[in-house]
Design a protein around this nucleic acid. Structure first.
Length: 336
DNA sequence: GGGCCCGCAGGG
DNA sequence: CCCTGCGGGCCC
């Protein structure tokens, strides 16, 4: 027996898929699957050299250190018996810092086409010093598309997405950035386009009888565009300012990283609307449809079948970094 | 695994 | 200054 919840969820997903198609977002700007090829485990484990050179000091990206088309070193292969480490949130078995300092800054279970931030702080990347203003529209200098962090604080330090918890960050002209972290089950993610759900409607303070002090909680009331964060994204759909997007390991789509958080580049909010979300009471949620700007590097695809990671097949390329896709520079930023 | 509650960066 | 929020560490 399928639960009513599941039925509602599937209905919502289907509806949103159709909506994305109706918006003309059904055609990928690139074909990730077609260009990805599974890498068979090669036997060894970790390794992953890693030049830490490249765009080290906020200079310009330069790229090309990307593994693509050059299966060799940098390919993980995780042989750890296939342990999926996405469960990191619950156990502290994994010492990220150690892993980062050693060879590969990126966990072996996920390194396809991924770069790491170069923000070196006293305690490592996640605790560096912020060098750029997160309150700007478009790319952050020196942070290439595909950059990966172990935690949200890393994204914050590198100014890609400032809030350590919040999913939306923005100003008067729209959102600067958003985080896809699987907070809402019925969001649809096609990589080059996706639907996103707004903030609010959660009882973070609990009830009078059972007061709480949470950072996130289940939906317990309607959302609305009155909510400042939701209003920002609504504003984005009007100004069409580019929005930085990071995908987190909690997101369930095949475009989400296995671990940590990854900068997936710039998107534009194509539409904003209200609908009944998938939750027990059918509370209203603010929903948005985002589309990726063209000219950006492909998004790595998670291989659903195995713990191996898909790999871009041929240098398909299109350079990373900020290159095109910049509707970005018009960041005369906040004119508050 | 689940529950609790903390810091932290923003926005008003 | 107070409140919010798609983290995360810890303890059970």
């Amino acid at each position: 027996m399928v639960s009513q919840y599941e039925l509602n969820k599937q209905a919502n997903i289907q509806k949103n898929k159709e909506l994305l198609a109706a918006l003309g977002l059904e055609k990928p700007l690139f074909e990730p699957q077609a260009k990805m090829v599974k890498r068979a485990p090669k036997g060894k484990k970790r390794k992953t050299p890693e030049p830490e050179d490249s765009y080290a000091e906020e200079s310009e990206p330069e790229e090309e250190k990307e593994p693509k088309s050059q299966p060799t070193k940098a390919q993980k292969v995780e042989g750890d018996g296939g342990v999926r480490r996405s469960s990191r949130i619950s156990g502290k078995v994994i010492d990220y810092k150690k892993e980062i300092v050693k060879g590969s800054p990126v966990p072996v279970s996920y390194s396809s086409g991924v770069k790491v931030a170069t923000n070196e702080g006293p305690m490592g990347r996640e605790e560096g010093v912020r060098k750029h203003d997160p309150k700007t529209y478009g790319h952050i200098p020196g942070i290439a598309v595909g950059t990966w962090w172990a935690t949200r604080m890393g994204c914050s330090v590198d100014a890609v997405h400032a809030p350590p918890v919040g999913g939306i960050s923005g100003g008067s002209q729209g959102a600067y950035s958003i985080a896809l972290s699987g907070g809402y089950e019925d969001d649809v993610d096609l990589g080059y386009a996706f639907t996103y759900t707004g903030s609010g409607g959660r009882a973070l303070s609990g009830t009078k009888e059972a007061p709480k002090n949470l950072r996130t909680a289940p939906q317990s009331s309607d959302q609305s565009f009155e909510n400042p964060y939701n209003r920002m994204l609504l504003r984005s759909s009007e100004t069409r300012k580019p929005v930085r997007v990071i995908r987190g390991f909690k997101a369930s789509s095949r475009y989400a990283p296995f671990e940590g958080y990854r900068y997936d580049g710039l998107y534009v909010v194509e539409k904003a609307w209200m609908e009944k979300g998938t939750n027990a009471k059918g509370y209203l949620v603010c929903r948005y449809a985002l589309k990726r700007l063209p000219g950006q590097p492909p998004i790595p695809v998670r291989d659903a079948a195995s713990s191996d990671v898909a790999q871009p097949e041929d240098g398909d390329k299109q350079d990373i970094g900020d290159a095109s896709a910049e509707g970005a520079d018009d960041e005369e930023e906040n004119r508050d």
